[in-house]
Amino acid sequence: MNLKENATKNWKDYLMVGVGSIITAGSINIFLVPYKIAPGGVSGIATVLYYVSNGKLPVGTTMLALNIPLFLLGMRFIGKKFVLKTLFGTVLLSVIIDLTEPFTNTFVKNFLGESGSLINSQDILLYALFGGFLMGVGLGFVFRSGATTGGTDLAARIVTHFFPVLTMGETLLLIDTSVIILAAVAFKSFQLGLYAIVTLFISSKVIDAILEGVNFAKAVFIISDLSDQIAAKILIDLDRGVTALDGTGMYTGNKKKVLLCILNRGQMPMLKNIVKDVDRNAFIILADIREVLGEGFKTYE
């Protein structure tokens, strides 16, 4: 990658961090903090402190203050490569949360109902769902750019540095669960803890979808004595490539060709009909594929 391409990529990465931070701030200010939904992480701790202090500790400022020691430890024990983009994302998110709070508070009061008013469980569930979705979209953009917004992912890296027996996933789950329990105790509401779990689950799934792709495809393995005929019809009728793998039936010891083909979901009925017409005794094994890069599918970025 030449200097110009590298500069363009960095510019796009920082732009994506900015957009992701704005979306994440919106989810926190509009759907989560007003209704005491604290889905783990630094934002969850900041939400608890905001209410415990009767609003004297702004959420954004508190998040930034909590992240400072994490950054110092991260630079010392993990390395400095991640620092610039992550620092940018962390500071930007904290600033946007505090700057937009007056506007989002007005929006919440006028359109969603005051946080102190009586709101039924269905309403809060909707806020938990939409808050989790928007947070997942925002953080997905940030993570895809190679940055983070600090918080539990940074804390998890530090913990696994000292305790390598723990995986990143286990550490993140432990930290987020602890924060949710803290919020449930502070707000004296088991129900709010459950809503926070819903938000955390939705956001994690959306993040995965953004990072790994949503263009699902199917990987098909076909085991048949008539594999050549099946492959020929797939090549012609479906216009899809087929790869033959060498296989051995362990019961009979016979050599067989195992066909591997990647298809769009809409082509599955046609493939099943092709195999059925050629060999009703064939085995078909289907597997979900998250993302496919190459000819006929998604192009390389």
Rank of each mutant, 00 (worst) to 15 (best):
L3D: 13
K4E: 11
E5F: 01
N6P: 00
T8G: 03
K9N: 09
V17Y: 05
G26M: 12
F31M: 09
V33N: 11
K36R: 15
V42T: 15
S43C: 07
L49I: 14
N54V: 00
G55V: 10
L57V: 07
G60K: 07
L64S: 02
L66F: 06
L72A: 08
L72K: 00
F82Y: 11
V83P: 02
L84W: 09
K85A: 06
L87R: 00
L87I: 01
F88R: 03
T100L: 14
P102R: 06
N105M: 11
K109P: 00
L118S: 14
L129N: 00
G131E: 07
G136D: 11
G136F: 09
G146T: 06
T149K: 01
G150T: 03
A156G: 12
V159A: 05
V159N: 01
T167I: 10
M168H: 08
L182E: 01
A184N: 03
S189K: 04
L192R: 08
L192P: 08
L194I: 14
L200S: 12
F201N: 08
K205H: 12
I207T: 03
G213D: 06
I223G: 05
D225C: 00
S227C: 09
I230Y: 04
A232F: 03
K233H: 02
L238R: 04
M250I: 14
Y251T: 05
N254S: 14
L263D: 07
Q267C: 04
M270R: 15
K272C: 08
L286E: 15
D288E: 15
F297H: 05
E301R: 14
